[in-house]
Design a protein around this nucleic acid. Structure first.
Length: 552
RNA sequence: GCGCCCGUAGCUCAGUUGGAUAGAGCGCCGGGCUUCGAACCCGUAGGUCGCAGGUUCAAAUCCUGCCGGGCGCGCCA
């Protein structure tokens, strides 16, 4: 709808320039928006105000010229008025809205799907949690965001891959092994020391018990045992991470192992590339990359003097590999505490001539948990924290995903367990789902009354004459452009707000007017409108990874 | 000290990328089921958009400077 109006305005401008009604000038950006005041029509544009600077008259004069010469062969616009400081308010003819609703019903699950992305290859790397412990809430937030972005990007015509990067080697995996080993020893000797930087948490004991049952650890010397425990412990944790994510409706196309970068020679290759550019140097026994030449505030070490490569080294190699695999765009979702890393990685990419906007990093802020009116303090060191699995088991996937996705990822999230646990009206999630279930219920009711949808909705839809009904269709019509906008600005929280608004409008309408009545065609028309609402809610929730139940 | 993010109703947050009288949920107060599901609806109250300048027809939104909060500035992972 918006696009159609934009075309009309553009044609009108062309005409006005050609015929000299308006002084020819570059068209400044103008906006077509949906006014919140119903007196301002269905759409409004600031076009006249944007042009006024280069024209003779005031915005009002310009607006009048535009309205007088509107190129509208199909009588799309019913009414065009000037308001405020020079806005042009458009009221669209009812027939156009009926057509739109008919189109929604026709397209069903595909309504809102677009080819915006033109099959462009994209990758979203997210979660990428270390395989040293269970997923916490921050990971969950990242998982929900990453997965939903992928769903939306896919729906918008991008060719999207989901990837999980596994830090499966190095210091932290070794510490995992040492932690398990120590716990195992403590079973028989409680005084056996626990590493100072070891992983707290009961899951370490559980792993020790489990592995001790499967493998004979007694004969091994400590080094061998620790290596074995590192390997087995890591694999078990990884399997659990994968399961927890699957339960959270998140699946990855590829689990990329850091160790593969070493075994495949990609680490060496990346180093050679940097060396060829003359950006590698040795100092103090360590190997450095001159990232300061590319916007970083200092140079960075990729190999320590003890010979170990740093995380940064494999990150460079990994991102070079992403580039080489031919992705047009790459999105990383990181915890906010990693933001210092962004310039570093981008500097390394810039050194290879990779453009700065190729990689986009989204930072996830913390999740705070509230219960009984107080914050649940979490501490990783003391292993006092609620895992994603625990939360999901407690309140359900739908609620967790919806709440995680309902806030912009740049601001910290307060998660009120009490609120979300309640399966009643206080719960923000059920509000939207209820609207969907309610429509389903209406159709069950209509079926009993032997009222069915007509073959061709066109004629019946003319029974929709109320302002509220047109307003609902207009709300429905926003869906495709909203999805496109989200695909561009990567802010899916707006979808949760939109769905809540749509549900609210529908609940309100439902309470004021009967859908199924003795008047058959009116009932059919209102059922068609309800169906339109249902389709949008279903498609929207689907993109959020939340169920749309037929009954609750 | 430097860099990034944030500051909007009592609380938690939106605000269509610069637009018209700044919105929603929760909480408070008061109403609404004999008819399609009350997991719902309707109404009332609640604001110096952190502060001060600047940019322009127009600023919660953009620029500058303060104030307040979070995070980051390792040859840690």
């Amino acid at each position: 709808m918006k696009k159609k109006l934009a075309k009309i305005l553009k044609d009108t401008l062309d005409l006005c320039f050609r015929e000299g009604y308006l002084r020819r000038m570059p068209i400044r950006e103008f906006v077509i928006e949906i006014p919140n005041n119903p007196d301002h029509g269905h759409f409004a544009t600031n076009l006249a105000m944007a042009l006024a600077g280069g024209q003779k008259g005031s915005p009002w004069d310009v607006a009048e010229i535009i309205i007088r010469h509107l190129v509208d062969h199909d009588h799309f616009v019913l009414k065009a008025e000037i308001g405020g400081a020079g806005f042009i308010n458009f009221t669209i003819s009812k027939g156009q809205w009926y057509n739109l609703l008919a189109q929604v019903i026709n397209l069903r699950d595909d309504y809102g799907r677009s080819s915006l992305g033109k099959k462009e290859k994209m990758m979203v790397e997210f979660v990428s949690a270390n395989p040293t412990g269970p997923l916490h809430l921050g990971h969950g937030r990242g998982a929900a965001l990453g997965d939903t972005l992928c769903r939306i990007l896919d729906f918008s015509g991008y060719d999207v891959r989901r990837e999980f990067y596994i830090n499966d080697i190095g210091q932290q995996v070794k510490i995992l092994g040492e932690s398990i080993y120590s716990r195992w020893r403590q079973f028989s000797d409680p005084s056996y020391p626990f590493p100072s930087d070891g992983y707290q948490g009961d899951y370490i004991q559980e792993l020790a018990t489990e592995i001790a049952k499967e493998k004979k650890l007694e004969g091994l010397d400590p080094h061998e045992a620790i290596d074995l425990l590192s390997e087995l412990g890591k694999d078990k944790i990884l399997r659990e991470i994968e399961e927890d994510l699957a339960d959270f409706r998140v699946h990855f196309d590829l689990w990329y192992k850091e160790s593969d970068l070493y075994s495949s020679g990609k680490m060496d290759h990346a180093r050679e590339l940097i060396e060829k550019r003359g950006l590698l140097f040795e100092e103090g026994g360590a190997l450095w990359v001159r990232t300061s030449s590319f916007g970083d505030d200092k140079d960075r070490v990729i190999r320590k003097k003890d010979g170990q490569f740093t995380y940064f080294a494999s990150d460079i190699s990994y991102h070079f590999d992403k580039w080489k695999r031919g992705f047009n765009r790459v999105i990383n979702i990181w915890g906010a505490d990693h933001h210092g890393y962004i310039t570093r990685v981008k500097a390394a990419l810039a050194a290879e001539g990779i453009p700065g906007d190729w990689l986009e990093v989204l930072l996830i802020q913390l999740v705070k948990l509230w219960e009984g009116g107080a914050e649940v303090k979490m501490s990783k060191r003391a292993a006092r924290y609620i895992t994603l699995k625990e939360l999901v088991d407690d309140v359900g996937v739908d609620a967790v995903r919806f709440v995680f996705l309902s806030k912009d990822h740049t601001s910290p999230l307060d998660f009120d367990i009490d609120l979300v646990k309640r399966r009643d009206s206080e719960n923000p999630v059920y509000y939207v789902q209820y609207a969907h279930a309610r429509v389903c219920s209406l159709f069950r009711k209509a079926g009993k009354e032997n009222i069915h949808l007509p073959e061709h909705p066109g004629p019946v839809l003319q029974r929709l004459v109320l302002d509220e009904e047109i307003a609902l269709i207009r709300k429905i019509a926003e869906f495709p452009s909203l999805i496109e906008e989200i695909a561009c600005d990567l802010g899916p929280h707006r979808l949760t707000y939109y769905l809540t608004e749509l549900a609210s409008s529908f609940h309100s309408y439902y309470n004021r007017h009967r859908i199924v009545t003795d008047d058959k065609t009116l009932s059919q028309a209102r059922l068609l409108l309800s169906l339109g609402v249902k389709i949008i809610i279903r498609n929207g929730l689907n993109l959020l990874g939340v169920n749309a139940p037929e009954a609750m």
